[in-house]
Design a protein around this nucleic acid. Sequence first.
DNA 1: ACCTGAACACCGTTCAAGT
DNA 2: ACCTGAACACCGTTCAAGT
Lengths: 213, 213
Amino acid sequence: MIRPVNAEMPVRPRRKRRGRYHHGDLGRALLQEALRTIQADGVESLTLRGVGKSLGVSRTALYRHFSDKSALLRAVAREGFRTLRLELLEAWQANGRGREAFEAMGVAYVRFALAHPSHYRVMFGGFVEMGSADPELAAEAAGAFGALVDALVALQQAGLVRRDEPLLLARFIWAIVHGIARLAIDGQMRCSPDESEALTRFAIERVRTGIAA
Amino acid sequence: MIRPVNAEMPVRPRRKRRGRYHHGDLGRALLQEALRTIQADGVESLTLRGVGKSLGVSRTALYRHFSDKSALLRAVAREGFRTLRLELLEAWQANGRGREAFEAMGVAYVRFALAHPSHYRVMFGGFVEMGSADPELAAEAAGAFGALVDALVALQQAGLVRRDEPLLLARFIWAIVHGIARLAIDGQMRCSPDESEALTRFAIERVRTGIAA
DNA sequence: ACCTGAACACCGTTCAAGT
DNA sequence: ACCTGAACACCGTTCAAGT
């Protein structure tokens, strides 16, 4: 079958030259392998040489796709914030967008951290300098935080939460779930996952009283 | 002046043999140099070789005093929990051991983290595996947590706080100040120290309502 | 006992060279 | 464009050797 000439196609489409090198999308493969390693063995076990080896690629192939190791970690963090945002939205929307949904979001947050502790550490561990550089990462992080802010504003408008400044309220709530998550995954409070969830529910219950309208 | 013979002195006091080797108490010096480096440049910049060099000592001299790098970091963490406990107690005792004193403890906690961010990260960053090994570290950490538990129990007995299980209440409070501290020092919420303190005060205010008797 | 240098097995990163 | 190996400047740790 002869494909018609299409104005959107480049004049001389680059052929893929498959098999010439090891990968079609090495960048994607590198990110996924890094995620796998981190999930399995933790960040401190992640080495560029190891990632390359797992993919049957030279130690330095990575530098064609990431400027350095920290750029790879930033990509990992970005991916994490994206997943977190989706899970928070899912909890909010699937539970009626009310007080119960807000509680479900808190539980979902802590569950995410407990399910992906190493990934969570990369997101928050200061491996990554937020801020100035990497606006994409900053945007993903802001997106996850935004899910929380939006939910709080909705609760305020429904008359369920006091009308303090939403940003301050959101930071307060975020600090609580983040604190529980980090203490749990860093092994600081000797707690089973069930106990961590019980603590989360207790916290939300007490906070509900504290911030009720 | 001739010092009298004292029964508490060892029979044949070891002479110091100063100048023979570089240090009288290299172990102490190593810990202090590690603390200095961490405070100045962060944990990731701490190298055993660098610590040795700063002290004019071979790269491997450290192994006479610490079994490995993680043992040095555990000593750093232990020192940190000791200081934190003392500062929490100071805040509690100097402010009347009541509701205001409890608020002062919360502020003191966050201030400690902001003043010594790298040190705080070593204490909580999972560089150190708490638990099984190093009972001294576990004891120091428990001591700092105990200051919080004791204060809460006192408030319960004074009828100022609901009589929930003290351990659960303490974990809840701890998670909040820890969460604020970590988000602040990891640069996650773009916040000045003053704003962090304002958030801390807001949190304590809301929590007071939430846990009031 | 306490300290030393040499040596080992690792890192991340750079760079000239290949296709 | 994309990948390669050699090389560089770092690590933590071990160990036989010195005093």
